[in-house]
Simulated assay, not measured.
Amino acid sequence: MTFITVAIFHLPQDAYIIKARLESEGIPVFLKDEYSVQTENFLSNAIGGVKLQVDENDALAATEILKAQGVELPGDSDKNHKGGLKKDQKVIAIVGLVLISILFLILYLNGSLDF
């Protein structure tokens, strides 16, 4: 049995719903990195989330069920995205950096920080 990833979730509880749906259709499911993310949620992005995997023979049927449920499949969001941060993410990052810089400048000029 060779398992392949058909969907990725940031949180295990999101994957459990789809897992139950696929298993109700007779498709065995394995959740890779489920316990790692469940134990330390902040690791989800670092390890690539919880990977919902099915046997390669069941991949087509599973993909059809996932599409019917409205689950975003790996590669769907990448078709129009060339990599890196999206525009709104860049703006948030720049604003955050500016605010942090201003905070440190105020603390330094106040004498609260000594370098």
Rank of each mutant, 00 (worst) to 15 (best):
I65P: 01
F42W: 13
F3K: 05
D114Y: 10
S77D: 14
L31E: 10
I17C: 08
E72K: 08
Q38C: 00
I106W: 02
D76A: 12
L113K: 04
S77K: 14
V71T: 15
L113H: 05
L11D: 10
Q89P: 07
I17Q: 13
L105P: 00
L97E: 07
V54K: 03
F42M: 14
V98M: 00
L52W: 08
K79E: 06
G96H: 02
Y35N: 11
A62H: 02
V37N: 10
I94D: 07
V98I: 15
F115T: 09
S101N: 12
T63I: 08
T39P: 01
T39H: 09
K90P: 04
N80Y: 07
S24Y: 08
P74H: 05
I65E: 02
V95N: 12
A46H: 13
K51I: 09
I65Q: 08
Q53S: 09
L85S: 04
I92H: 10
F9M: 07
I17T: 11
I100S: 06
L85G: 05
Y35T: 11
A20P: 00
L103Y: 03
V6Q: 09
G84T: 00
F3C: 08
L73T: 10
N110M: 13
G96I: 00
L109K: 15
I4A: 05
M1Y: 08
L11H: 14
E23R: 09
L85Y: 06
D33C: 08
D76R: 03
L105N: 11
G96S: 06
K87S: 13
F104Q: 02
S24H: 12
Q13T: 12
L113I: 15
S44P: 02
H81R: 11
D88N: 15
E23K: 04
K82M: 03
V50D: 06
V71P: 02
L73Q: 12
R21K: 14
A59Y: 01
A62M: 03
L60I: 12
L107F: 13
N80M: 01
L97M: 13
D88K: 05
N110Q: 12
L109N: 12
Q89T: 03
D76I: 03
N110F: 13
S44L: 03
A68K: 15
D114W: 06
F42C: 02
I102L: 15
D55C: 03
L109M: 12
E72D: 10
H81Q: 11
L85I: 05
I94G: 02
I27Q: 06
G26L: 10
D33F: 09
S24E: 14
V50E: 14
P74G: 10
Y108W: 14
K82P: 08
D78T: 07
K82H: 07
T39R: 12
K51Y: 04
D33H: 14
G75P: 02
L52V: 11
S101Y: 04
E40S: 06
I8P: 01
L52P: 03
F9L: 05
F3W: 00
T63K: 13
G83C: 03
E40D: 15
D78S: 07
K87N: 08
L107P: 03
K79I: 12
